[in-house]
Amino acid sequence: MKKLLSLLLAVLMLAGLTAVAEAPAGEGLLIGVVYKQSGNPYFQASVTGFQKAADELGFTFLHDGPDDGSSDGQIRIIENYISQGVDAIAVSANDPEALVSVLQEAKAAGIKVVSWDAAVVAAGRDLDVQPASAKSIGLTQLESIAQSIGYEGQLAIVSATATAPNQNLWISFIEEALNSDPAYANIEYVGTVYGDDEYTKSYDETLGLINLYPDLKGIITPTTAGAPAVAKCVLDEGKSIKVTGLTLASDMAEYIKAGVCDATFLWNPIELGYAASYAAVALVNGDITGAEGETYEVPKLGALTIETSTAVNEAGELVPTDGTISYLNKLNAFTVDTVDEWVNIL
């Protein structure tokens, strides 16, 4: 009897213990993270976010990106993840279409797919996680440069590659606002050139712009890789051109302090990776399915709502797609006052 009682007590205690120390939501999960290219500081920062979430949720993750930034390099990495039996794949795609087949195979194998930063088309994903809506990203930069140049003068854009889906969407909103918003009526938009996210090419394209338009007043450069080259070129030429864009703080501190940029912007890639992790874990655990109207909780960012994603059609209008998306809706401004606190983070 005594023995039985002690056994019963022991079982009860054990049950009590497990109830108290509840396992974190991501315990035992394996997530494969794919980014566009290895060696890019932006993606190194986002990996920090995945790490932070992994510490909190208890999952483990693998991360890799092709060294040449190619789609077939990403396909190789994803195929390796599938054979390793990951629970979820979080991917920032080099091409929105190219990864669809392999990601559909992943989904067929029961793997949840979250795209973050650069989306895969709806057929290849369960959910897309983005920092801020394309409209707000585009217009924030436009408003900033307009303030810098006093709402008049020539304006140009130095973008990444001609096919980069993010940049093209932001630019479409900037162009739309320039055409329709009376506040920008005195700004003359001279066009977009492509620096292909390479330092030298971005520098050369900027130099070309400066030579072609001697009265150029402002440049928007919505790409972290191209921005330092653009600002350096403006500084080297000694022109009074203002530059804004999406940039890392560490790359641009010098130019912000030199007065070339009044403010540059970026979401927080750490938070982006962090939120993508929470989305992936919620999908794997079945808390969400990636359908419109669902919400998932991310510490410090609150409840993120899943909505229908949008895309630009051939007529240049924003139309809903069959995929879903959730926005963090947070954009940081780096100014001469705030840039120093971000230098070591971004």
Binding site: S71, D72, E97, A98, S101, V102
Partner: peptide
């Protein structure tokens, strides 16, 4: 076939 019928000029670098 591998890249979901998407055709780009920078392919196979």
């Amino acid at each position: 076939g591998a890249t979901s019928s998407s055709i780009r000029a920078d392919a196979m670098g």
